[in-house]
């Protein structure tokens, strides 16, 4: 009888623990990524890859805007460049540097494809994003 009661008690405790673990695990967290981080998710989600996170700040320390935005032809618009892996391995866009020569090469998939699945294409913390798509990311465009 006593054992039965104990078992019943521990069952409740385990259930409560599990419930709280679930609660904590899925608590929504707001993105606090760097100003100017670009998420590119034009094709990634569909292809089963994590979306790409491009850290502007990291590249800005090494190159001036002109190198990518004038010489390499990146338009000033997140998702506006129609970049895909074929173009990259042919030396266009990211591939102009990420070729194992200027910067590390494309086999390091996970260094770029490191975003949370389902994160929409965006310039993180842009004025536009704050005005139109507040808090915790926007609906997929």
């Amino acid at each position: 009888m006593a054992i039965e009661r104990k078992q019943w008690k521990s069952a409740i405790v385990i259930a409560a623990t599990a419930w709280m673990a679930v609660l904590f695990g899925f608590a929504p967290s707001e993105a606090t990524a760097e100003y100017g981080d670009v998420v590119m998710n034009e094709y990634s989600d569909e292809a089963g890859m994590r979306p790409v996170v491009f850290p502007h700040w990291f590249h800005r320390i090494r190159f001036r805007c002109k190198v990518c935005h004038a010489d390499l032809g990146f338009k000033f618009q997140a998702g506006g460049n129609d970049i895909n892996m074929l173009k990259i391995i042919d030396g266009e866009y990211c591939g102009a540097c990420h070729n194992g020569d200027v910067a590390w090469s494309v086999e390091n998939c996970d260094l770029c494809h490191s975003g949370k699945a389902g994160t929409p294409t965006q310039v993180h913390e842009s004025t536009l994003q704050k005005l139109i798509m507040p808090a915790g990311g926007a609906p997929k465009k």
């Binding site: 990524a33 981080d37 260094l111 490191s114």
Partner: peptide, 23 residues
């Protein structure tokens, strides 16, 4: 300026989150 694994955009499970430089 949180590190990638805690910035809410990088997947903490990904290799990148650990390997990338914290701002």
């Amino acid at each position: 300026n949180p590190p990638p694994a805690k910035d809410g955009i990088h997947d903490p499970e990904s290799v990148g989150a650990e390997a990338l430089q914290p701002p």
